[in-house]
Amino acid sequence: MREVAIVAFAQSDQVRHSDEQSEVEMLMPVLHQVKEQTGLNASDIGFTCSGSSDYLAGRAFSFTMALDGVGAWPPISESHVEMDGAWAMYEAWVKILTGEADTALVYSYGKTSPGSVRDVLTRQLDPYYVAPLWPDAVALAALQAQALIDAGETDEPALAGIAARSRDSAADNAHALMKGSVPQGDYVVQPLRKGDCPPISDGAVAVVLAAGDKARELCARPAWIRGMDHRIEAHSLGVRDLTDSPSTRLAAERAGVFERPVDTAELHAPFTSQEVVLRKALKLGDDVNVNPSGGALAANTVMAAGLLRIGEAAARIHRGESDRALAHATSGPCLQQNLVAVLEGDAQ
């Protein structure tokens, strides 16, 4: 299999509102940053892939205008997934593995603030039996959290601890939105309190992938993708064991997570309770640095938060702060679909 690495990563500030910017205005500076980091321009890049959602924007074909920020002229080889950008990166990685491209630009962006994201996400649910009841994203996560509490896997103080640790880590992250000391607050949907839930944020993220020697040329310490896999589970919550994430575990196995210990894990767990599920599925010990960026509890830009986890993990390898990191992205209600990537740096 071809050696492929993440050689550049950039993100916008993840902000509560971005009224002053259209999607492309928000995205473009981030694209410029990764191009500057690598010295590549649009025509040097072999493949471009993005992830976003029309439902978040409230407009059909919203991604077509974002392409304006790329400078797709002369025409480029390009694709788009209606998924978190992590899956766009998966598509780009596969493209490079075929040998058809040596480099790829991957980006995603989300404006979570214009709509009520709790309600927007109800439109993901079974349109016959579930969506007509409008169960919002916090309610579904709360059902999962209660199942974990009933199973003795966590309790409210432990969840509060995850929230505090995440926001404390985010204090060092200039781009994060919710950081430092954040009170747990009242229940949003019991047992989840305000502090257990992610902030609503807008933002953009981009990474550049490159193969082999090209990666070494573009980056002092490339974050090599040693494996990447994603799996989906049944849709209905009532047929799943909400206290576990077999799809995460399987994706991790396929990605090679369990072959050697990781030192860092960036987990896309929008709710504190979901970190409990993911830690179990991924068999992460206390010695693993989980979400040093603050994770999705510090900024949860829907459609970008997964790619952001991968970018944050890669950046730690770039900076020499990690040698082997796991990055995870999720999609769908209560962790229905999960992606896991293993990133490594060359020996220092």
């Binding site: 439902y55 997934v81 209606e82 993901q124 799996r231 849709h235 769908g332």
Partner: peptide, 24 residues
Amino acid sequence: GVMMPELYLADALGAVGKPMLRVH
């Protein structure tokens, strides 16, 4: 009127436990 309908369609397409990608 279904956001990311592949999530709901995973069962019908035998995708449970498998990778599923959605292109647009």
